[in-house]
Design a protein around this nucleic acid. Sequence first.
DNA 1: TCGAGAATACGACAGCTCGG
DNA 2: CCGAGCTGTCGTATTCTCGA
Length: 260
Amino acid sequence: MSTPAPYTTQLQAGLGLMDETKVLLDIWQPGQTASQLYQAALDSGRFPNVTARRLRNVVAECFAPRYLTNQGIAAQHLKSLATRLNSGDLLQLFLLFTARANPILADFIREVYWDRYASGHTQVSNEDAKVFVQRGIDDGKTSKRWSETTVRRVSAYLTGCCADYGLLEKGTRSSRRMLTFRLSQNVAAYLAYDLHFSGLGDASVINHLDWRLFGLSREEVIEELRRLSLKGFLIFQAGGDVTRISWKHPTMEAVCDVLA
DNA sequence: TCGAGAATACGACAGCTCGG
DNA sequence: CCGAGCTGTCGTATTCTCGA
């Protein structure tokens, strides 16, 4: 196992950025690097209300790490899905890629959000986030000890980001109500195939931590795969302690076509 | 109970630092 | 010298406090 990526303060450059991301996906062309996209976005005139410096931050620190890693496959998929999926599905996909790019957010959602949900809480406060961040620092998850103000801000960004992605209520408040959040079937299909095509075996797909972002236990993942099987996305067979998945679509592009 | 003003929190922005 | 990551600052929004 490689060492996990350290926690960073990268969320400070932007939280959900739904609207900006949609526009950038529209502008982005396959093969374009972050700096090329920045230049294209600048030239497009579609960001009249932000400074060039700010746009650079959004592209380089938010969009690129979330969607342009691995030759931009996420951006390629989303570019075709963005106009065709409903906004709820899209939001969940944005959450998936943002969480993958920001381990601190992924851990926060898995360890704080869903834990609190499971134990019957209805709110998540910035103070809860602060405790989580502080513990992360103590556990050596950051590359250095963060200043007091950074701890405070990152804590607020974590809850703010959850609000942008529909996990917590919107608005700026130091304690937010948890919202009902359920993984959509389209996103479940996307995630299953995405994990499969990343080279994982069926057992690793089922056990993957990405499902925990959506609050699904291993058993619930299996249940979800059964549902996907009924809908014809794939064929799921569980006999005794052997599970087997027959993947019906040969490429991620084919999956995206089916979803759209 | 209400509202004005104070205090605090939030998030965007951009400059700074430091390691390679 | 460059770029990733960190942090100070500022305008705005929200919450608190207290007198009437």
